[in-house]
Amino acid sequence: MSAGIRADGVSVQLDGHSVLDGVTLDVRPGEVLVLVGPNGAGKSTLLGVLSGERRPSAGTVTLEGRELGSIRHSELARLRAVLTQENQVSFPFRVIEVVSMGRAPWARTLEGRDDIAAVNEAMDAADVAHLANRRYTSLSGGERARVALARVLAQRTPIVFLDEPTAALDLRHQEDVMRRARVLADSGCSVVVVLHDLSLAGAYADRLALLAGGRLESIGTPAEVLTADRVERVYGLPVELHLVNGRPVVVPRR
């Protein structure tokens, strides 16, 4: 099952301040779309709008032609999963319990019988199977981030949003997460990822959307979007661009 999302002229105002301004883009099944841009560019806000968490002040967001706001919470949870930046858990649940919560949207549906398989697969994919019986509250930041990822994977939705999934992770687990995003997309999912690391973005994105000051500065393949000129202008920092295996790698000029 696959599903695409289309945002049309989406704007968001917060406290009379324009955070997102007339953004139009679509998210296609089978691709990894990475959102990049400087702090405060509106990446997380755009992710919130696309995932149906935030209603745009203007413009529309549709999922397979249906207005996102008209879809019930419970149905939406079977269509898209969201990995947020903050993943605190209020009580000392065990890791396996937290990951199993990702199956909640499928309770009392036919897919509910896949619960155990989905949880196990997700824990293996996020490399947290060995933590299954640990208390979530006793884990390190990076381990928590991976458990949260496992919960999102266990939700098995055709659309997956990842907000800075690599922030707390070491080099190997960063690559693991992005590889997993790739696998999801190859299996037909739509994957939207917010990243800060332009080289990581360049390596794994099918398409890259560069945001600046709430506007969509550029969207296209990594090579199209990441030009030295544009990156320097948007980030206000001189950079060098190298191509490794045809993928752009961004290095600040020091």
Binding site: H73, R78, F93
Partner: peptide, 20 residues
């Protein structure tokens, strides 16, 4: 009870998992 479990993940995550 199940919904309270999800609420332990924080409001946003609970909402993303379909809790009103």
């Amino acid at each position: 009870g199940r919904r309270y479990d999800l609420l332990a993940l924080g409001e946003r995550n609970a909402r993303h998992l379909g809790v009103n």
